[in-house]
Write a protein that binds this DNA or RNA. Structure first.
Length: 303
RNA sequence: GGUCGGGUGGCCGAGAGGCGAGGCAAGGGACUGCAAAUCCCUCUACACGGGUUCAAAUCCCGUCCCGACCU
């Protein structure tokens, strides 16, 4: 049974649409939002409440503690396992979220070579000692193709490429598939779009509501739970700003405005990411969404 | 009315005769183990009018605004 994907920028109404689709098909939802994965990150991630989920089973929601790191490779394996599980029970899976790479990691044949904490640590130390330029020059020697593809200023990607080379003994690019291949060829992807200006307004009021709903208290609790002990969760929009506020780096008002601005910028990056994927069927907010989805699925005679 | 400071791109902000500081915002883009992350590109402005000079955002004169102080 083919999977259905709902993607798009933040604050476009993905979660709600996914619920109505899931209810229509008696399906189960797989979360593809890198931050909703965390327990206790509710207000700031605009996570649906239990009531709002209307009894639809959710997977990969609230599965990590804030002091645990998350990675795509891990996400890929657990998400695919969840799909297998859902389908084995004769149900359909609906994937929803705004984390493009996570969705891609499920749908496409992305194979992530292993990671090695030791190798990684020594590379990070080298970044400090000899600098990014020297690391990039090494990459140019070891894997010229990767050096062309990776920005010389992007330390994150340069380090990962060198890590993969060190572990596999092969060039980074050799680990990439030659042609794009899809794991779930009959997956149906729907993307929600919204006019930039309107989306900006929605983001603004949404962030204000988060603050009224006790966003700062939520972060205070997560600070006690060790959110700053791991790398992933503390980077979330709003959370990082409130943490900065608690560290005296900005006022609470600045934190709020900064959250809005950063969220708008995030939405832009999401649009850029998803716009590359020609498989996505785009749905505008003026259309009745569920009807639009169902009409499309009927037209293609969804397996 | 007088004196002294100022008026720089959407905003902040350096420069003080000679290749358009820089930051932020905005827009575009990249993306295979932190992805709500990380990174790249674009955006020719010096209040106005004269003058000096080979050359003026930078010097001179005038005008208009803003601020401080004085009467």
């Amino acid at each position: 049974m083919s999977v259905i994907v709902v993607c798009g920028a933040t604050a476009t109404g993905k979660s709600e649409l996914a619920i109505s689709i899931a209810r229509h098909f008696d399906a189960e939802i797989i979360n593809a939002d890198s931050m909703q994965i965390y327990r206790g990150m509710d207000i700031g991630t605009a996570k649906l409440t239990v009531e709002e989920r209307q009894g639809v089973p959710h997977h990969l929601l609230d599965v990590l503690d804030v002091n645990q790191d998350s990675t795509v490779a891990w996400y890929q394996s657990v998400a695919r396992a969840a799909i297998t599980d859902i389908q084995s029970r004769g149900k359909r899976a609906v994937i929803v979220g705004g984390t493009g790479l996570y969705i891609k990691s499920i749908l496409d044949e992305l194979n992530f070579p292993d990671t090695d904490p030791g190798v990684r640590e020594s590379l990070e130390k080298e970044l400090e000692s000899i600098g990014l330029n020297a690391l990039f020059e090494r990459l140019e020697k070891l894997d010229p193709a990767a050096a062309i593809a990776i920005d010389r200023a992007n330390s994150r990607r340069v380090i990962r490429a060198l890590e993969v080379i060190a572990i596999t003994g092969k060039p980074f690019t050799a680990n990439l598939p030659r042609a794009a291949s899809t794991r779930y060829p009959d997956a149906q992807q729907f993307g929600l779009v919204m006019d930039r200006e309107k989306l900006g307004e929605r983001i603004s009021t949404r962030v204000d509501r988060m603050w009224e709903a006790g966003f700062v208290d939520e972060v205070d609790a997560l600070l006690k739970a060790g959110i700053t002990d791991a790398r992933t969760a503390q980077l979330a929009l709003g959370y990082s700003q409130i943490i900065a506020f608690r560290n005296g780096l900005m006022s609470q008002d600045e934190a709020r405005e900064d959250t809005k601005r950063a969220t708008r910028q995030y939405a832009r990056r999401q649009e850029t990411w998803f716009s590359r994927d020609a498989r996505i069927t785009w749905i505008s907010p003026v259309q009745p969404r569920l009807e639009r989805v169902l009409a499309h699925l009927e037209k293609i005679n969804l397996p």
